Simulated assay, not measured.
Amino acid sequence: MSVKSEVKLEFAEVDSRLIHISERISKDLLYLCPLCKQEVISRKGPQRRHHFAHKPESNCSASEETILHFNAKNYLAYCITAYEMNLEEIIFNIPIGLLDESIQKVIQILGIQYYPLSLYKLKSYYHFSRAKTEQRIGNYVADVLVKCEEYSDEYEYDDEVIDRGYFLFEMRVSHEIGEEKERDLLESGIPFIEAIPEQTERGYTFRVTSMSLYSLLKDSKDQLIRLLSTHFEEELIQVGKNMFNSTVEKELRKTAIERAIENVDDLNLRDYISKEQFASINAIEAKAYMSEVHQTVALQSIRYKTGREDKSYISINEHLYWVRSENILYDVVKKLDKQGYKVELLIGGYSNSSKSKVVGFRFQLPDRYLYGEQLKRIMKAGLMDLLNNVNEEEE
């Protein structure tokens, strides 16, 4: 796996305790690199991702793969234990090839190659209690071992703790989990995920390469079957055979399709479209003619400022300014129009002129809600085609 050069150290040791860069940093304490035990300092500037950095004279030999592996496993353990973290934003993208064949059919309808599973859903379903890194379980050492516990009554002081076993995470950076370890984990019945971590501006996303989530995915499958039963032909036909004879199978298929059409509106397709997937689908780049792009930075602020000789100019992120702004606007409008987005002209003028001019534009841009609604219409059209095919078979 190739690792991007921006991988930075996110954890440091202080008083034999591991802390994350997001925690409060004290100038009176000594922070050490957990990998080489040399002193590190915090970098919390406004432009770059916050991290710990070695001093110039450091000779730390940890590779970027080692740092990424260390960051990812400790970040997972930290997020599971820290109650203030937003676990909805930490996504495990499961390739549809790892899913049950019946679930694959549903996901493929949406044109999505990955099933997004949030850490929040994992924690809620398996009752994550606390997590530690590099913990031995059986014959192996887990990157992240999670203790799963459920409380019988959260409103009583003497809650009974119900032991739900363990959950295991493995971070795949330079080495995969291995066939022997994967086989042993599957035989043990311990649910687990092996994933390739990717560092983002907001934390991490994970691409799953191996897993055992039988009960969770089974429940997800049961929910989807109720809404899209027509795409589970084998299960549907088996139920039909148990209840009726073969002469009513076509009527059963027809009823299932009609029921699916009725229930499409209850399906929240936005839950299956992550922010990263939506952004990649709708991103359009516009720039000044013949210019070169050296890096991409998130927009933090844009406003008018007054410079020398009382001349106004547009300030971006407080220290950047436009290059050929009219040319950039031209490229934005042209590309949106070419991509099929609806662009309307705003015609008007000013009080001291009666001549009509173009004073602005109105862009009709997609959002996750409208995108989900459009997918519903596509699904309904597909289901109607299936229903028509069944009616034609009867004729």
Score class of each variant (00 low, 15 high):
P95K: 07
Y78P: 07
Q108S: 14
I109T: 11
K105H: 08
E101M: 09
Y114R: 04
N74H: 07
Y115L: 04
F70Q: 02
P116R: 02
I109N: 15
I107D: 07
E84F: 12
L117G: 01
N74T: 10
K105F: 06
D100W: 09
N74E: 03
M85I: 12
Y83T: 10
I91H: 00
L117K: 03
L87C: 09
I109C: 11
M85E: 14
E101D: 11
N93L: 07
I91K: 01
E89K: 15
Q113T: 14
Q104S: 08
I90N: 00
T81C: 12
A77C: 05
L98M: 11
P95H: 04
Q108H: 10
P116M: 01
I90S: 00
I94V: 08
Y75G: 05
L117P: 00
Y114E: 06
I103C: 06
L98R: 09
E101C: 09
F92W: 03
P95N: 07
K105C: 08
I103S: 10
S118T: 03
L117C: 02
A77I: 01
M85Y: 10
K121M: 13
M85G: 07
Y120V: 06
E101L: 14
Y115N: 03
I80S: 03
I90H: 00
S118M: 05
Q113D: 14
K73S: 02
L117N: 01
K105R: 15
Y83H: 11
Y83F: 12
V106D: 11
I112E: 11
M85V: 15
G111D: 04
G111Q: 09
E89L: 14
S118Q: 03
M85R: 13
T81K: 13
I90P: 02
Q104F: 07
C79V: 00
A77N: 01
Q113A: 13
I90C: 01
N74A: 03
I103Y: 13
Q108D: 14
Y75I: 03
I94S: 03
L110M: 13
P116D: 00
I103Q: 15
M85P: 06
A77Y: 01
P95T: 12
S118V: 02
I107A: 09
C79T: 00
G97R: 15
L117Q: 02
